[in-house]
Simulated scan of single mutants.
Amino acid sequence: MTVREQTEQIEQEILSPWAAKAGSSRGRARPEEDCPLRTIFQRDRDRVIHCKSFRRLKTKTQVFLSPRGDHYRTRLTHTLEVSQIARTIARALRLNEDLTEAIALAHDLGHTPFGHAGERALSEISGGRFKHYRQSLRVVDRLEKEGEGLNLSWEVRNGIVCHTEGKEPYTAEGRIVRVADRIAYINHDIDDAVRAGVMGEEDIPRGITERIGGSKKERITSLICSVVENSHEGVIAMDPDDFEAYDALHEFMYQAVYRNEYAKSEEKKVPHVIERLYKHFCDPACLPEYMQRIAEEDGRETAAMDYVAGMSDLYAVNTYSDLFIPKAWSHN
Rank of each mutant, 00 (worst) to 15 (best):
I85Y: 09
C51V: 03
R30G: 09
L223H: 05
Y258T: 01
R45V: 10
A121W: 02
P240T: 08
A304N: 04
R259W: 12
W18M: 13
N332E: 05
L65I: 15
L105W: 00
D241P: 00
L314F: 15
G128S: 10
S321V: 15
T171I: 09
I208K: 01
I125G: 00
Q9Y: 13
I208S: 04
A328C: 04
T171H: 12
H116R: 13
E155F: 06
E155Y: 06
I294P: 08
E289L: 14
Y320M: 06
E202P: 00
D283E: 05
H107K: 01
I212W: 00
E165Y: 09
I220F: 02
E101Y: 01
S123L: 00
I125P: 00
A102N: 04
K60Y: 03
A256Q: 06
R293G: 10
E218I: 11
N151H: 13
P67C: 08
G23D: 06
H71L: 09
L277T: 13
L99D: 01
E155S: 07
S222Y: 06
E101W: 04
G234C: 05
I85A: 07
E81G: 13
V308S: 07
A121I: 08
P36E: 05
H250K: 14
R175Q: 14
D191L: 15
E244V: 04
V48Y: 04
R26L: 11
G127W: 12
G23H: 14
A245N: 00
I85P: 12
I325G: 14
P67N: 14
A180T: 10
E266H: 07
T112L: 03
R47G: 09
S330F: 11
G127H: 07
L65P: 03
F54T: 02
I49T: 14
E146R: 12
A304L: 03
S312G: 05
F324A: 06
T39L: 02
E144N: 03
V179L: 11
L143G: 02
I14T: 14
G213P: 14
D141Q: 15
I176F: 01
A196G: 06
A86H: 08
R47T: 05
S231W: 00
I125F: 04
T77L: 15
E148G: 04
I10E: 14
T171K: 07
C286P: 01
E81Q: 14
R55Y: 15
H50Y: 06
G174E: 03
E8C: 11
S25H: 07
R157F: 10
G214E: 03
F114C: 07
E297T: 13
Q292P: 10
R138G: 02
P284A: 12
L37Q: 08
R26P: 03
V48E: 00
R38P: 04
M199K: 08
T7A: 13
V257M: 07
D242F: 02
H272Y: 09
